[in-house]
Design a protein around this nucleic acid. Sequence first.
DNA 1: ACGCCCGCCTGTAAGC
DNA 2: TGCTTACAGGCGGGCG
Length: 277
Amino acid sequence: MPELPEVETIRRGLEREVVGKRIKTVQVTGTRTIRRQTKKVFITKLEGAKVTHVERRGKYLVLKLDTGELLVIHLRMSGQLLRAQAKDAVVKHTHVVFTFTQGGQLRFVDPRTFGELFVTAPDELTKEITELADLGMDPVDEPISWVKFREKLLSRTTKLKPLLMDQSFLAGLGNIYSDEILWEAGLRHDRVPQTLSTMEIRRLYRAIVEVLHEAVKHRGSTLADEGYVDLHGRPGEFQLLHQAYDREGQACRRCRTQIVREKVGQRSTFYCPNCQI
DNA sequence: ACGCCCGCCTGTAAGC
DNA sequence: TGCTTACAGGCGGGCG
């Protein structure tokens, strides 16, 4: 479900709501959510620890603990982190509940159970998650250098959409935002970097930065299934500004041509067949 | 070394 | 109405 803007929104929520708090107890009820270590080890490493920082690495959330270890969270397709009070009803598919010494809880809810949590030492992180060992530039965290972007783009032969979704090229993009970026740039998903003019590369570069900043500003995209909500259960608003994703049959806001939907490597791809070239 | 395709799950919506 | 099928924000692994 969540891509960079959604994970970043959650990260900011955690920064306000969870950093500085000490974990009193951890309850693990899910059977698949903790899979890199035993539940017992997971719980032991967390109880009594204080959360001191929250970082995002691509779509991963990394919470630093005062024990020196890291709590790593990936929401995958349907994971949610929700702030709650102990008295609040526990919704279906709640797999992990953290209770803080100051009161209040953080709950991990995940119907499809693809998401996971684990605790690891900082120097083990990239061994545990090889994707993080070779993570691309972060388009929101650090301003991307135009020279580096161009160089890196031209070194790849992959088509633009799979390239944008490749976490070793850029960190944090998925199916929604790659379609939105390509619409904004006026480029087709199957273009190959070597065929792009300097102007087209510039448009792509600008689209990446602009679309993601706007999406973060509007706290991410919540689709009809409401799979993504922030820590407070609030939906995002960027879906109202989508130009391509989930707009099949609707008029392109640039040229009025109907947006088409096409399967590209099993993923739905939305684009304007007229003004994306 | 790369691209393609499946599997991992549950829930919802569309199709018959 | 009810059953069946397709599909959903991600990622790793196995295949050719």
